[in-house]
Design a protein around this nucleic acid. Structure first.
Length: 488
RNA sequence: CGGGGCGUAGCGCAGCCCGGUUAGCGCACCUGGUUUGGGACCAGGGGGUCGGAGGUUCGAAUCCUCUCGCCCCGACCA
């Protein structure tokens, strides 16, 4: 009642904001464009971090930390890079405040102007490559496989919680290699890890592909991306992995001697995913009742609700169940609050997306059973206490699978292949989702399509075989189909 | 930056056009009681000076001027 959520069918955007707010994921803050990530939202991010961090480390990467501030001159060393980020940088110009001589408050002390302005990192290639110059002399210093978990700032004009905030949290990997091949393999490896994480943990199906030149990361030779589809038919770029060639090594003069004492510039990759993934998670699975979380990332996987309220007998059974589940590595919470009634709690946990709810009342105990409700399908069923741990364990797996399958069915159903521009526009308008079509490979065509339809090329899919055809817009020859969509 | 909307209690809003005594409602909160298998009910209670500044007036949430901020749509973008 107090927690009414706008229906997705009425206003998807409002629905999204309601979920973020009412499920307690994040709040707007006093700072324009910056959000406060609340405990539930942050716990989801922590679970994402934990898994990704594990995957990075399993593949030989280590974490480090580089400064928040980047000297202005660094940013301009790579021409394309600065061009891409110049318009959205927070700039530090002074380092001291003073009392306002005209009265109350403080003002910037003009005498504290910095010799060289500092930029709050929008990404860290420059400061890192400036450092790598000192770290790399020989092929024996390579590869360098470093990641950092940090905040970055991009002064976007318009922001949305998680999807695009002025400050956001992410990880950025920056690797250095002795050969082009090795750097390319690294880029592909991370691309693969991102896709696996999205599908196996977030239960969010993604399409792997490469960006067009126009959509490429500023300073990259090639950008690999995973693209997901949200419930409203818009695409979300969920993670990118960039092959940087020798661009940054050249800009920052990072060279190494190979085993023949030949000096060459280092090859590089960089890659990142951000708190945007939390937004993607919300928009992939949640419904009009609230958040729906895949078990693998849910901070609480199972909640036990005593009905109508806790008593010693129920709590004993509850804690036995919790013990058994915890032994299987399942995250369980017993709701011991006596002041709220069951109906309120049910609604609350549905809003918060807890995958499984176990209700225990005296009526159940007489029959040696409990009531199990799954969040994804809203089904409820009585389950015997005997073997309940195995039952729940399996159910969590089933929910994880079901969420992925449901999302994938929706996604697959929203890939429309078209041969002419009229069909292109119709499909985009009526159905949304990805539009697969031949493209002549020119930026000019890409931009014209964007101008006329707002759709951009999300990627050139990896698994799309070459085929000859005519560009959907220009009718020029094309040898590959690409995916278009309106995107977040 | 262009277009639209909005700032009144923790949240959501009414009041403003047609100035007039202690600024109102729902949710939330506190106390007591009755309840308790899908967002309980009754009674009592606490909390706001109406985004800010200036002005008009006997009198301003209400009228005027300036100002600050937020949200939505667009251009930009992870």
């Amino acid at each position: 009642m107090a927690k009414e959520i706008t229906k997705r069918s009425e206003n998807y955007s409002q629905w999204y904001n309601d979920i973020v707010k009412k499920a307690g994921l994040a709040d707007n803050s006093a700072v324009r464009g910056c959000m406060v990530i609340k405990p539930l939202g942050y716990a989801i991010w922590e679970n994402m971090q934990a898994q990704l961090d594990k995957m990075f480390k399993e593949t030989g990467h280590v974490n480090a930390y580089f400064p928040l501030f980047i000297p202005k001159s660094f940013l301009s060393k790579e021409a394309k890079h600065v061009e891409g980020f110049a318009k959205e940088c927070a700039v530090i110009t002074h380092h001291r405040l003073m009392n306002d001589p005209n009265g109350d408050g403080v003002i910037v002390d003009p005498s504290s102007k910095l010799e060289e302005e500092l930029i709050v990192r929008p990404t860290s290639e420059t400061i890192i490559w400036n450092t790598y110059r000192d770290w790399i002399q020989s092929y024996r210093d390579l590869p360098l496989l470093i990641n950092q978990w940090v905040n970055v700032v991009r002064w976007e004009m318009r922001t949305r919680p998680f999807l695009r905030t002025t400050e956001f949290l992410w990880q950025e990997g920056h690797t250095a290699h002795a050969s082009k091949k090795e750097a390319e393999e690294e880029t592909a490896l991370i691309h693969e890890i991102y896709a696996r994480f999205a599908e196996d943990y977030m239960a969010m199906p993604v399409i792997k592909g490469v960006k067009t030149e126009n959509e490429r990361f500023a300073g990259a030779v090639e950008t690999y991306t995973i693209e997901a589809l949200m419930q409203d038919g818009k695409a979300l770029q969920a993670g990118t992995s960039h092959f940087l060639g020798q661009n940054f090594a050249k800009a920052f003069d990072v060279k190494f001697s190979d085993n023949n004492n030949k000096v060459e510039h280092v090859w590089a990759s960089s890659w990142g995913v951000s708190t945007r993934l939390v937004g993607g998670l919300i928009m992939t699975h949640s419904d009009d009742e609230g958040l729906v979380l895949p078990p693998k990332l849910a901070p609480t996987q199972v909640v036990i609700v005593p009905i109508p309220k806790p008593n010693p007998e129920i709590l004993e059974v509850a804690s036995n169940i919790k013990q058994k589940l915890t032994a299987l590595g399942i995250r369980v919470k017993i709701d011991e609050d006596e002041t709220k009634r069951p109906g309120f709690k049910f609604a609350q946990y549905e809003l918060e997306g807890v995958p499984i709810r176990i209700g225990i009342g005296m009526r159940d105990l007489v029959n040696n059973q409990v009531e199990i409700a799954r969040r994804d399908t809203k089904e409820k069923m009585p389950v015997l206490l005997e073997g309940i741990d195995q039952y729940v364990d399996k159910l969590l797996g089933d929910i994880q699978t079901n969420l992925f399958e449901t999302a994938k069915a929706y996604r697959d159903d929203h890939i429309t292949e078209v041969k002419n521009f009229t069909d292109f526009k119709d499909a985009l308008e009526e159905k949304g989702g990805f539009i697969k079509a031949h493209w002549d490979g020119s930026t000019e065509t890409e931009l014209k399509i964007k101008e006329e339809t707002k759709a951009t090329i999300r990627c050139i899919p990896n698994d799309e075989a070459e085929s000859s055809g005519k560009c959907v817009y220009s009718s020029n020859d094309s040898n590959k189909k690409v995916l278009f969509a309106k995107a977040y």
